[in-house]
Simulated assay, not measured.
Amino acid sequence: MLSNKQLQDIQSLQQLCEDTDHLALKLNWETLRTRKTHDHYDYFHYSGDMLTGFLGVYKFGSKFEICGMVHPNFRRQGIFTSLFQTAIQDTGTIGYSSLLLNSPANSVSGERFLHTVPCQYECSEYQMRWNATYAQESLNLIEPTPQHEVSLRSATDNDIEDLVRLDKEGFGMSDEDVLDMHKTLTEDGLEHMYVMESNGVTMGKINVLPSESQTWIYAFTVDRAVRGQGIGRRTLHHIIQQELPHNKELWLEVAVHNPKALKLYESCGFVTQEKQDYYQFTRKETIS
């Protein structure tokens, strides 16, 4: 569990790095704010009272992602390399099926670091923000027929099996990851998760996570059997209209290699703002 001071220090360092480098770091704030007491996935480097380096490890089933940053005035001093080596040792002890290193696509310091470790490019994601200027036509909902009418409701414990099935089907999760997901949903609860229904039948799922100034859409998937019937589009319209009164930025992420989803999001008014690159770490032993 991270203290309020630690969270504030991370936020301040993130803002400084983003302003200096003109980029957006992906620090998974929903995870940072909900770390449990036994979670030890965060690594800090302080110079006096000032946080000058941070690295976060994010666990998704049997997979890990790593992202971090160093104060612009303290770079090229081995700070991030030291944090990274410690994190690699710890995650190697836990064990993982995949370890991805995340860096903004336009990060010069991130690219420089990636050249020093054994990794290879894996994939990229666009981070997209809803823009009313691009969404005027899309907000005029097509009248749904009774056959394709879509409604949203909060998920309950009775939905867990369906939610796990949809995640496995939609995101190619392994059996091990499915078991981990089931445990997570059971222990952490289902706040911010919605079930998409049509005529009382589960058609998909979507998570909507609000923060102080932004709301993020993630883990959005439609049942494979009913794709291509406008269910995803109507769901997004529901969410957009639901969130508009809160006057927060509405964001989501989409894989670069998923053109159908990208086209859907663009047609609903989402505009690409940032690109995040992911690199597969190619060995588990500690770097010497």
Rank of each mutant, 00 (worst) to 15 (best):
A87P: 04
D9A: 06
L25R: 06
C268V: 09
G172S: 01
F54M: 00
D175N: 08
T184A: 12
Q6S: 11
E274S: 10
K284H: 15
D159S: 00
R76S: 13
S62L: 05
S151W: 08
M69P: 05
R165A: 14
F113K: 09
K260W: 05
D49T: 13
Q77A: 04
Q241F: 05
L163A: 02
P210Q: 04
I88F: 07
D21M: 03
V201G: 01
I217E: 04
M196N: 01
Y46C: 06
P144T: 11
V70Q: 03
G172V: 05
E137C: 07
G61I: 00
G204Y: 06
K263R: 12
E65I: 10
T202A: 10
G189H: 08
I66Q: 07
L83R: 02
L51E: 02
K275F: 02
H148P: 01
I239H: 06
L244M: 11
L252R: 06
Q77S: 03
E243A: 06
H45F: 15
R234N: 12
S82D: 12
T91N: 05
I94N: 00
D177K: 05
S109I: 09
L262G: 05
R233S: 03
K168D: 01
G172H: 03
H246C: 11
F171V: 13
Q136K: 15
I287P: 08
E176Q: 10
F220C: 04
D19Y: 06
S109R: 01
L2E: 05
S211W: 00
L55Y: 08
H182Q: 13
S62Q: 11
T156W: 05
N106W: 03
Y58R: 05
D9I: 03
Q120K: 15
S198C: 12
L139F: 08
G95C: 06
D49M: 07
S154R: 15
E125H: 13
H22N: 15
I160S: 09
Q15W: 09
L141S: 13
L244Q: 11
H38R: 11
E274V: 09
G95T: 04
